[in-house]
Protein backbone atom coordinates (compact mmCIF):
# COMPACT_ATOMS: atom_id res chain seq x y z
CA UNK A 1 0.00 0.00 0.00
CA UNK A 2 1.32 3.43 -0.88
CA UNK A 3 0.96 6.39 1.47
CA UNK A 4 0.15 8.91 -1.26
CA UNK A 5 -3.08 9.09 -3.22
CA UNK A 6 -3.44 9.06 -6.99
CA UNK A 7 -2.92 12.81 -7.02
CA UNK A 8 0.47 12.43 -5.38
CA UNK A 9 -0.46 13.76 -1.92
CA UNK A 10 -1.20 12.37 1.51
CA UNK A 11 -4.91 12.13 2.28
CA UNK A 12 -6.33 13.57 5.49
CA UNK A 13 -6.84 10.01 6.65
CA UNK A 14 -3.17 9.17 6.17
CA UNK A 15 -2.09 12.34 7.98
CA UNK A 16 -4.52 11.68 10.82
CA UNK A 17 -3.38 8.08 11.11
CA UNK A 18 0.23 9.24 11.15
CA UNK A 19 -0.58 11.52 14.07
CA UNK A 20 -2.34 8.64 15.79
CA UNK A 21 0.72 6.43 15.19
CA UNK A 22 -1.69 4.01 13.53
CA UNK A 23 0.09 3.52 10.20
CA UNK A 24 2.15 0.46 9.42
CA UNK A 25 5.83 1.27 9.82
CA UNK A 26 6.58 1.10 6.10
CA UNK A 27 3.67 3.37 5.28
CA UNK A 28 4.59 5.74 8.11
CA UNK A 29 8.14 5.97 6.80
CA UNK A 30 6.87 6.65 3.31
CA UNK A 31 4.50 9.31 4.58
CA UNK A 32 7.25 11.01 6.58
CA UNK A 33 9.53 10.98 3.54
CA UNK A 34 6.76 12.53 1.48
CA UNK A 35 6.32 15.28 4.05
CA UNK A 36 9.94 16.27 3.55
CA UNK A 37 9.38 16.73 -0.19
CA UNK A 38 5.84 18.13 -0.43
CA UNK A 39 5.19 21.61 0.91
CA UNK A 40 1.40 21.22 0.63
CA UNK A 41 1.26 18.03 2.70
CA UNK A 42 3.86 19.41 5.09
CA UNK A 43 1.64 22.43 5.64
CA UNK A 44 -1.34 20.20 6.37
CA UNK A 45 0.73 18.07 8.74
CA UNK A 46 1.84 21.19 10.60
CA UNK A 47 -1.73 22.48 10.75
CA UNK A 48 -2.93 19.19 12.22
CA UNK A 49 -0.15 19.20 14.80
CA UNK A 50 -0.90 22.80 15.68
CA UNK A 51 -4.59 22.02 16.07
CA UNK A 52 -3.75 18.93 18.10
CA UNK A 53 -1.62 20.94 20.50
CA UNK A 54 -4.29 23.59 20.77
CA UNK A 55 -6.94 20.98 21.46
CA UNK A 56 -4.87 19.30 24.16
CA UNK A 57 -3.86 22.54 25.85
CA UNK A 58 -7.02 24.62 25.68
CA UNK A 59 -10.01 22.63 24.53
CA UNK A 60 -9.76 19.15 26.02
CA UNK A 61 -9.93 19.92 29.74
CA UNK A 62 -12.56 22.60 29.32
CA UNK A 63 -14.94 20.53 27.22
CA UNK A 64 -14.43 17.03 28.62
CA UNK A 65 -16.97 17.47 31.46
CA UNK A 66 -19.62 18.59 28.97
CA UNK A 67 -18.89 15.64 26.70
CA UNK A 68 -19.07 13.20 29.61
CA UNK A 69 -22.33 14.75 30.75
CA UNK A 70 -23.77 14.47 27.25
CA UNK A 71 -22.75 10.83 26.97
CA UNK A 72 -24.09 9.93 30.38
CA UNK A 73 -27.46 11.23 29.20
CA UNK A 74 -27.33 8.96 26.14
CA UNK A 75 -29.65 6.29 27.46
CA UNK A 76 -31.37 3.98 24.99
CA UNK A 77 -34.44 5.71 23.63
CA UNK A 78 -37.83 4.37 22.78
CA UNK A 79 -36.85 2.63 19.59
CA UNK A 80 -33.81 0.98 21.14
CA UNK A 81 -35.78 -0.34 24.10
CA UNK A 82 -38.59 -1.32 21.76
CA UNK A 83 -36.25 -3.28 19.53
CA UNK A 84 -34.52 -5.00 22.41
CA UNK A 85 -37.71 -6.09 24.13
CA UNK A 86 -39.08 -7.59 20.96
CA UNK A 87 -35.94 -9.40 20.04
CA UNK A 88 -34.77 -10.87 23.31
CA UNK A 89 -37.30 -13.71 23.55
CA UNK A 90 -36.59 -14.79 19.99
CA UNK A 91 -32.83 -14.89 20.16
CA UNK A 92 -30.22 -17.00 21.79
CA UNK A 93 -28.46 -15.55 24.81
CA UNK A 94 -25.17 -14.88 23.05
CA UNK A 95 -26.76 -13.22 20.04
CA UNK A 96 -29.08 -11.21 22.22
CA UNK A 97 -26.15 -10.01 24.32
CA UNK A 98 -24.28 -8.98 21.20
CA UNK A 99 -27.31 -7.21 19.78
CA UNK A 100 -27.92 -5.55 23.11
CA UNK A 101 -24.54 -3.90 22.78
CA UNK A 102 -25.46 -2.65 19.33
CA UNK A 103 -28.78 -1.26 20.39
CA UNK A 104 -27.59 0.18 23.68
CA UNK A 105 -24.85 2.02 21.87
CA UNK A 106 -27.41 3.74 19.68
CA UNK A 107 -28.88 7.18 20.12
CA UNK A 108 -31.94 8.00 22.11
CA UNK A 109 -34.04 9.20 19.21
CA UNK A 110 -34.46 8.52 15.54
CA UNK A 111 -31.39 10.05 13.96
CA UNK A 112 -28.83 9.43 11.25
CA UNK A 113 -27.92 6.28 13.20
CA UNK A 114 -31.27 4.74 12.59
CA UNK A 115 -30.89 1.35 11.02
CA UNK A 116 -34.39 1.05 9.68
CA UNK A 117 -35.21 1.07 6.02
CA UNK A 118 -38.54 2.39 4.99
CA UNK A 119 -41.21 3.71 7.25
CA UNK A 120 -41.20 3.05 10.98
CA UNK A 121 -43.98 1.59 13.03
CA UNK A 122 -46.04 -1.18 11.51
CA UNK A 123 -44.64 -0.72 8.04
CA UNK A 124 -42.21 -3.36 6.78
CA UNK A 125 -38.58 -2.86 7.77
CA UNK A 126 -35.36 -4.63 6.90
CA UNK A 127 -32.35 -4.72 9.19
CA UNK A 128 -29.06 -6.47 8.58
CA UNK A 129 -26.58 -7.45 11.26
CA UNK A 130 -23.06 -8.70 10.78
CA UNK A 131 -20.66 -10.58 12.97
CA UNK A 132 -16.94 -10.71 12.36
CA UNK A 133 -15.20 -13.82 13.69
CA UNK A 134 -16.17 -14.10 17.36
CA UNK A 135 -16.79 -10.38 17.79
CA UNK A 136 -20.00 -8.63 18.72
CA UNK A 137 -22.77 -8.25 16.16
CA UNK A 138 -23.09 -4.85 14.56
CA UNK A 139 -25.74 -3.23 12.42
CA UNK A 140 -24.97 -2.99 8.72
CA UNK A 141 -25.61 0.52 7.51
CA UNK A 142 -24.94 2.38 4.30
CA UNK A 143 -21.37 3.18 5.27
CA UNK A 144 -20.51 -0.19 6.78
CA UNK A 145 -17.57 -1.96 5.17
CA UNK A 146 -17.81 -5.73 5.43
CA UNK A 147 -15.21 -8.39 4.77
CA UNK A 148 -15.16 -11.90 3.38
CA UNK A 149 -16.25 -14.44 6.00
CA UNK A 150 -18.36 -11.89 7.90
CA UNK A 151 -21.64 -13.52 8.84
CA UNK A 152 -24.94 -11.81 8.07
CA UNK A 153 -28.29 -12.21 9.77
CA UNK A 154 -31.55 -10.53 8.86
CA UNK A 155 -34.37 -9.03 10.90
CA UNK A 156 -37.59 -7.95 9.22
CA UNK A 157 -40.86 -6.41 10.23
CA UNK A 158 -43.13 -8.32 7.85
CA UNK A 159 -46.24 -6.28 8.60
CA UNK A 160 -49.17 -8.13 7.08
CA UNK A 161 -47.02 -10.04 4.58
CA UNK A 162 -47.23 -13.83 4.52
CA UNK A 163 -44.10 -14.61 2.52
CA UNK A 164 -40.50 -13.44 2.77
CA UNK A 165 -37.38 -13.80 0.65
CA UNK A 166 -33.94 -12.18 1.03
CA UNK A 167 -31.68 -12.05 -2.01
CA UNK A 168 -28.45 -10.44 -3.09
CA UNK A 169 -26.55 -9.21 -6.13
CA UNK A 170 -22.84 -9.06 -5.38
CA UNK A 171 -20.06 -6.94 -6.82
CA UNK A 172 -19.79 -9.18 -9.87
CA UNK A 173 -23.51 -9.15 -10.52
CA UNK A 174 -24.11 -12.67 -9.21
CA UNK A 175 -27.61 -13.23 -7.84
CA UNK A 176 -28.11 -15.38 -4.73
CA UNK A 177 -31.02 -16.18 -2.47
CA UNK A 178 -29.96 -15.75 1.15
CA UNK A 179 -33.26 -16.63 2.80
CA UNK A 180 -34.57 -19.24 2.51
CA UNK A 181 -31.03 -20.06 1.48
CA UNK A 182 -30.76 -21.19 -2.14
CA UNK A 183 -34.52 -21.55 -2.49
CA UNK A 184 -36.50 -21.09 -5.70
CA UNK A 185 -39.26 -19.06 -4.06
CA UNK A 186 -40.10 -17.12 -0.94
CA UNK A 187 -40.78 -18.72 2.44
CA UNK A 188 -44.22 -18.82 4.02
CA UNK A 189 -44.37 -17.27 7.46
CA UNK A 190 -46.28 -19.65 9.69
CA UNK A 191 -47.59 -19.67 13.22
CA UNK A 192 -47.57 -16.62 15.46
CA UNK A 193 -45.32 -14.24 13.54
CA UNK A 194 -43.68 -11.70 15.85
CA UNK A 195 -43.88 -8.09 14.80
CA UNK A 196 -40.11 -8.12 14.30
CA UNK A 197 -38.73 -11.38 13.11
CA UNK A 198 -35.16 -12.61 12.95
CA UNK A 199 -34.91 -14.91 9.92
CA UNK A 200 -33.28 -18.27 10.41
CA UNK A 201 -30.59 -17.99 7.76
CA UNK A 202 -27.01 -17.01 8.48
CA UNK A 203 -24.92 -16.15 5.43
CA UNK A 204 -21.14 -16.13 5.37
CA UNK A 205 -19.81 -13.63 2.82
CA UNK A 206 -17.51 -14.87 0.08
CA UNK A 207 -14.48 -13.04 -1.30
CA UNK A 208 -16.23 -11.12 -4.10
CA UNK A 209 -15.34 -7.49 -3.46
CA UNK A 210 -17.35 -4.39 -4.24
CA UNK A 211 -20.84 -3.13 -3.59
CA UNK A 212 -23.44 -5.76 -2.77
CA UNK A 213 -27.15 -5.04 -2.83
CA UNK A 214 -29.55 -6.90 -0.55
CA UNK A 215 -33.30 -7.00 -0.98
CA UNK A 216 -36.08 -8.34 1.15
CA UNK A 217 -39.28 -9.21 -0.69
CA UNK A 218 -42.42 -9.28 1.45
CA UNK A 219 -45.62 -10.45 -0.18
CA UNK A 220 -49.01 -12.05 0.31
CA UNK A 221 -48.32 -14.77 -2.26
CA UNK A 222 -45.13 -16.74 -2.95
CA UNK A 223 -42.64 -14.98 -5.22
CA UNK A 224 -40.25 -16.84 -7.51
CA UNK A 225 -36.53 -16.19 -7.04
CA UNK A 226 -36.24 -15.79 -10.81
CA UNK A 227 -38.73 -12.92 -10.71
CA UNK A 228 -36.71 -11.24 -7.97
CA UNK A 229 -33.54 -11.73 -9.98
CA UNK A 230 -35.15 -10.18 -13.06
CA UNK A 231 -36.42 -7.20 -11.05
CA UNK A 232 -33.00 -6.65 -9.53
CA UNK A 233 -31.14 -6.86 -12.79
CA UNK A 234 -33.68 -4.72 -14.64
CA UNK A 235 -33.88 -1.97 -12.07
CA UNK A 236 -31.12 -2.41 -9.49
CA UNK A 237 -31.68 1.03 -7.94
CA UNK A 238 -35.38 0.48 -7.24
CA UNK A 239 -36.48 -3.09 -7.98
CA UNK A 240 -40.23 -3.54 -8.18
CA UNK A 241 -42.38 -6.66 -8.02
CA UNK A 242 -46.12 -6.62 -8.44
CA UNK A 243 -47.93 -7.49 -5.24
CA UNK A 244 -44.79 -7.31 -3.14
CA UNK A 245 -42.98 -4.81 -1.00
CA UNK A 246 -39.26 -4.67 -1.81
CA UNK A 247 -36.81 -3.07 0.58
CA UNK A 248 -33.14 -2.74 -0.25
CA UNK A 249 -29.83 -2.28 1.51
CA UNK A 250 -26.31 -1.90 0.18
CA UNK A 251 -22.92 -2.50 1.73
CA UNK A 252 -19.38 -2.55 0.45
CA UNK A 253 -17.20 -5.60 0.77
CA UNK A 254 -13.51 -4.85 1.11
CA UNK A 255 -10.39 -6.92 1.62
CA UNK A 256 -9.30 -7.31 5.26
Amino acid sequence: MTATNARGHLSSETIDLLLLSALASSEANEAKAHLDDCSLCKQRWLELNEDSQKFKQYVFARTLPQVEARLSESRPGFFERFKLQLLLPALGVATAAALALTFAAGPGTQTEDDIYIGVKGLEPTFEVFAQREAGASFAVKANTALRPKDKLRFVVTPGQAKYVLVASVDGKGTFSVYHPFGAAESEKLTGQVPRRLELGSTVELDDTMGTEKLVVVLSDAPVKAEAVKAALLTSPAAPKLEGARVLTREFVKVAP
Partner: peptide, 18 residues
Protein backbone atom coordinates in the same frame (compact mmCIF):
# COMPACT_ATOMS: atom_id res chain seq x y z
CA UNK B 1 -14.42 8.49 27.21
CA UNK B 2 -11.51 10.62 28.37
CA UNK B 3 -8.98 8.39 26.59
CA UNK B 4 -10.94 8.34 23.35
CA UNK B 5 -11.62 12.07 23.48
CA UNK B 6 -7.92 12.69 23.93
CA UNK B 7 -7.13 10.33 21.06
CA UNK B 8 -9.69 11.34 18.43
CA UNK B 9 -10.57 14.86 19.65
CA UNK B 10 -7.62 16.51 17.86
CA UNK B 11 -8.58 15.02 14.49
CA UNK B 12 -12.20 16.07 14.93
CA UNK B 13 -11.27 19.54 16.16
CA UNK B 14 -8.83 20.10 13.31
CA UNK B 15 -11.35 18.93 10.76
CA UNK B 16 -14.09 21.16 12.18
CA UNK B 17 -11.72 24.15 12.19
CA UNK B 18 -10.89 23.56 8.54
Amino acid sequence: VSDLYRKFGPAIYSRCRR
